[in-house]
């Protein structure tokens, strides 16, 4: 794609990021939440001209780059300290969520098998990305993909508002709040946003937990591909799927964690890198806000929403109880 086509949207992301930071400095509102709100108002109030769309669509690139850079402010010790416990909670809650959504959608609410599987992947792993990845493996219909993606986006929008409120009401510590958001919310962007909106520590734990969850995507896609291939209706599964679906920016994140642990960065360099990822996150969240379209959210069906809501309530409560016991 020609670079000049990206420039108008990129300029809007940059202006939104600067405005969000200025509002934080003058009015005290959190810059990440302001960034999402600015994107939301732009998309749903003013409308987005088509020439802005290519540039705005780059927001996931900036989110990934921000996560990579976040690795420089962590050390291996921090990760290993609670890594096994977090991994245990991630695998347990992810498995339970997928099983629960499948059970409810097939046996209780009578949704189509593939729609149930898309909802399960979206709720269990990483939102719309998981929906799209599993859709390819099980050859879901376009209508089902759109339905499942809209349901996930609806919950992304709702949880951005609800999680911080519940976290404050329950008086959760930053670490528990971060892991809880990372293990039970759906898409990576909203997880990072609510984490860092609470505190730096909560944001780091939310992101690390979510990355562990995202890393399971390959296994889930492979599992679904194998299941649907038995009926001759899915794509042919292969071990290569594990690599194809693996979020590669996690490797960049881990590389920086190793470098930071080895003491490669001076305090001043670390501060600069932290500032860089703060800017990248604000850019990304202006773009994330533009993806929350009220018109699209109205297209979700009631039954998929009920199925996902029930699984979210169970997964969220269970993970919170587990974390209260473990931390």
């Amino acid at each position: 794609m020609a670079v000049y086509r990206l420039l108008p949207g990129l300029l809007v992301l940059c202006l939104g990021a600067i405005l969000a930071r200025a509002i934080e400095l003058t009015a005290g509102f959190n810059h990440l939440l302001v960034a999402i709100a600015l994107g939301f108002v732009l998309a749903n109030g003013l409308g987005i001209p088509s020439r802005l769309e290519p540039g705005l669509a780059t927001h996931k690139l900036w989110l990934g780059a921000g996560i990579v850079l976040m690795g420089a402010s962590l050390t291996l010790n921090t990760i290993l300290e609670a890594g096994a416990v977090v991994l245990f909670v991630v695998v347990l809650v992810t498995g339970l969520t997928i099983a629960l959504v499948e059970l409810l959608s097939r046996n209780v609410f009578g949704l189509a098998d593939r729609l149930g599987s898309l909802l399960a992947a979206g709720a269990g792993i990483c939102g719309v990305s998981a929906v799209v990845a599993v859709a390819g493996a099980i050859r879901a219909r376009e209508g089902q993909i759109a339905y499942a993606a809209a349901t996930v986006l609806l919950f992304d929008a709702a949880t951005i508002v609800v999680y911080p409120i519940v976290g404050d009401l329950l008086g959760l510590s930053d670490v528990v709040f971060g892991i809880w958001a990372g293990v039970s919310m759906f898409s990576t962007g909203p997880v990072v946003a609510v984490g860092f909106a609470r505190s730096e520590l909560a944001g780091q734990w939310a992101t690390m937990t979510k990355l562990a969850r995202n890393a399971l995507i390959g296994v889930v896609v492979l599992g679904y591909a194998s299941y649907y291939a038995r009926t001759g209706e899915g794509a042919r599964p292969s071990v290569r799927t594990l690599w194809d679906e693996f979020p590669k920016f996690v490797l960049g994140f881990l590389a920086l964690v190793v470098l930071a642990s080895a003491g490669v960065f001076s305090p001043a360099q670390r501060a600069s890198i932290e500032n860089a990822y703060s800017w990248l996150f604000v850019l990304a969240f202006v773009g994330l806000g533009t993806e929350i379209r009220l018109a699209g959210l109205r297209n979700t069906g009631l039954l998929p929403v009920i199925v996902v809501l029930l699984s979210l309530l169970v997964g969220s409560t269970l993970s919170l109880l587990l974390l209260a016991l473990l931390f």
Partner: peptide
Amino acid sequence: ERDWQSVAVGVATV
């Protein structure tokens, strides 16, 4: 791939 682009932006910033 977009993920590698994110890594490239990270490397350039570092």
